[in-house]
Simulated assay, not measured.
Amino acid sequence: MEKHFELSDQEFEKRFINCQLNPSDFSHEAHLRLAWICIDQYGIEGAEKYIPVHLQKFVKSVGANDKYNMTLTIAAIKAVYHFKLKSKSNNFKDFITEFPRLKTNFKDLISCHYGFDIYNSERAKMEFLEPDLMAFD
């Protein structure tokens, strides 16, 4: 089990927002958990506004500005939302067990939407680029 699960959803979000979360604990799964929490708290539109602001602040605080990618951030939120709508889970642990592809095959999921490399695109890092293959629903 990953370290971020040692924290309640409230404590996890609070530490993230205050840039007190250990960067080594902020794994891909932890990013997905943050999306789950924020969608619950603020709705999809709110999460799409809230997370980028705080994620940029977090990466800056740990000296990892080059790691931030706006397109990937929004795409991950949209992917979590898509599966959350289909989910029977009422907590993130059950959710990620129900939809393990979000964790284990995330790049494949994203490649269904984007026919170009959003991971290394300078433009994708700075602004959200709409998918060119399949829109998020």
Rank of each mutant, 00 (worst) to 15 (best):
N22R: 09
I39C: 04
C38S: 07
F26G: 02
A64Q: 13
K60C: 12
K84S: 03
G43N: 14
D40T: 08
E48W: 01
K78C: 10
H28L: 06
H31F: 12
A47G: 00
N69H: 06
D40P: 01
H54S: 06
R33K: 13
A75K: 01
A75L: 02
P52N: 08
E29K: 10
K86C: 05
S24H: 13
E45D: 13
I39L: 11
H31I: 06
I51Q: 01
A35I: 02
T71Y: 08
L55A: 10
I37N: 01
N69A: 06
I74D: 04
V59D: 11
K78Y: 12
D40W: 05
W36L: 07
K60E: 13
I37L: 01
L34W: 00
K78H: 12
V62P: 01
Y68K: 08
Y81E: 02
A64C: 15
Y81Q: 10
H82T: 14
E29Y: 05
L32G: 03
L72I: 11
Y81N: 15
K67Q: 11
K84F: 02
I44Q: 05
F58E: 11
I39A: 12
S87R: 04
G43F: 08
S87W: 11
S27W: 10
F58R: 07
K57R: 15
H54M: 12
P52G: 10
H54N: 15
P52T: 07
C38F: 04
E29P: 00
K78N: 04
P23N: 09
C38A: 13
A64D: 11
S61L: 12
K86A: 09
F58L: 06
S27T: 15
S24W: 05
K67R: 13
T73P: 00
L32H: 04
F26Q: 03
K60P: 11
N69Q: 03
I77C: 01
D25K: 00
T73L: 02
Q41C: 03
E29S: 15
R33E: 01
F58K: 09
A75G: 05
A79N: 09
K49M: 11
A35L: 05
W36Q: 04
K67A: 05
L34G: 05
A35N: 09
H31N: 14
T71I: 06
S87M: 02
P52C: 02
V62I: 15
N65G: 02
Y81R: 02
I77A: 08
